[in-house]
Design a binder for these strands. Structure first.
Lengths: 204, 204
DNA sequence: CAATCAATCTTGACAGTGTCAAAATATCGC
DNA sequence: GCGATATTTTGACACTGTCAAGATTGATTG
């Protein structure tokens, strides 16, 4: 009768047509608005216009849904890092590095709730990270490790053991993100200054 | 009739006698065992041997209870820092600083769940931090800032603006704690190496 | 086209949660 | 001993995640 199926707007047939994708999108929005805690499976189902338990045919768990959303975040991070590494030929390494740090933290701040989800206890402690999420996050760090190794060899970054250096520098970025996101001890307005201070600490 | 009141062991009278303290203690234990999420007001009441809503006469909220527990954590941190600063006269500054970093991270790891509570979203984002908790955490950072300023003046730490330096160095510590606690990208067995790597980055 | 089958969605149900209101009980100041 | 006050309890409500069983549809065959 009416147009339904893959159309993202009109749904009144029994089968939604594209529930999985709609769920992901709506859930991402809800998390962005009010954090993981404001996302309940029931409200989500309501928002998409479907019954409470319908989502369970596309995601085994709430946990699995959250993992899927976290994965998207890791993919965004990956693309940010890749863009930076690609630009490494054109500009000065230090400028590229600084830009990356800024972009990383700004992106984490812009998608703060998703960032919290990516590294928060909700997934990594309470729930269980999906196999694919684990792999993705591992690859993400491997990417960082590779770049840090290069930057070290180029004489830009301090430190000896590349692995330790990668861990510590990343911990610094991560710590800053968390502090900014949670508003502890820091204010968002000081972002640039703190970044520069952090970079100065890491540089050779 | 029977001995009750302030006695911490025997309770069978209507009035518990020392509920507030017992609640705090039991809640701390439960959190240490299974994290914030495994602590429910009802289970807590059960554990202390009291009815579901009794705790609400001593803590307005679950939030307030959590804040009280977080406060204890801040007090422990404060004493760790104070001990370090007191020892600054006897030993070499660098050795004292290294010892502090190690102790901080080890303590955060030992009381990981409480540490997550102290800086996690549960309190600082979902709930609302108590006025006293806010003050305590602010003082905690002020303490750190003071020491960092001293260490900078003594030529031990890098950086220019003491505030930025304090923020960034602390973010590094905090980031390491979180990674260790959540087991992301790091293993607890590398703790010492990572600490030394981090310290090398901060030193002048 | 008709019949079967698998995918998809819904309704009903259960145990668990935080927390409010009203009632019960004990302790303390007089 | 009596009344005020502090403390604890029972009942109730709305909300959560998720399981089991039934209803509805679209796809696949004969």
């Amino acid at each position: 009768m009416t147009d339904t199926k893959t159309s993202t707007s009109g749904r009144q047939s029994y089968h939604h047509g594209d529930l999985q994708q709609s769920l992901l999108q709506a859930a991402t929005e809800m998390i962005a608005e009010g954090g993981t805690e404001s996302l309940s499976m029931r409200k989500l189902a309501d928002r998409v216009g479907v019954s409470r338990t319908a989502p369970y045919h596309h995601f085994k768990d709430k946990n699995e849904l959250l993992c899927a959303i976290a994965e998207q975040g890791f993919r965004r991070q990956e693309s940010i890092l890749n863009r930076a590494r690609e630009a490494s030929g054109t500009e000065s390494l230090q400028a590229v590095f600084r830009q990356y740090v800024l972009t990383y933290i700004e992106s984490a701040h812009q998608h703060r709730e998703q960032y919290d989800l990516m590294f928060g206890r909700e997934i990594w402690r309470n729930g269980q990270p999906t196999a694919s999420l684990q792999q993705l996050s591992k690859e993400s760090f491997q990417n960082w490790l590779h770049w840090v190794t290069e930057l070290q060899q180029a004489g830009l970054l301090r430190g000896e053991d590349p692995l330790r250096t990668a861990q510590v520098t990343w911990a610094t970025l991560h710590g800053l993100c968390r502090l900014l996101n949670d508003g502890i001890y820091t204010e968002a307005s000081h972002l640039q200054q703190m970044c520069d201070s952090a970079i100065a600490m890491m540089l050779n």
